[in-house]
Amino acid sequence: MAEYLLLFRGGKGMDRDQSAQEYQEDMQKWVQWMANLSAQGKLGPAQPLKPEGKVVKGTSKLVTDGPFIEGKEMVGGYLVCKADSYDEAVEIAKQCPILESESGIVEVRSIMEMKM
């Protein structure tokens, strides 16, 4: 089984106008999705990220406020999952509640084993 990183962008979480109840309902969907993965032994570390941040760049280590990209495309959280294949990881990603919103994006990346 290999590990895959799921990066979340956009989605309802970025929407500041969500009511408390909508937020609750949304979170319940995340819980169900992750509990399901956990029960199958496929859940790894997962955390949501705050919208603000800093960017450190290049040899001069220039620090700027960031990320500068538009809010909707900013990474809003990550989850590491275990899957037998890329296809399976993609299937897992398709179940992510973030995709209930048109702006939701899940980027699925395979974690590379570094050969020394």
Binding site: M27, W30, V31, M34, A35, S38, A46, P48
Partner: peptide, 16 residues
């Protein structure tokens, strides 16, 4: 424990 695993993520900590 699968249920406790959800305590490690902020996505699921308080709901769990």
């Amino acid at each position: 424990d699968p249920e406790r695993m959800l305590l490690q993520s902020e996505y699921t900590l308080t709901s769990t």
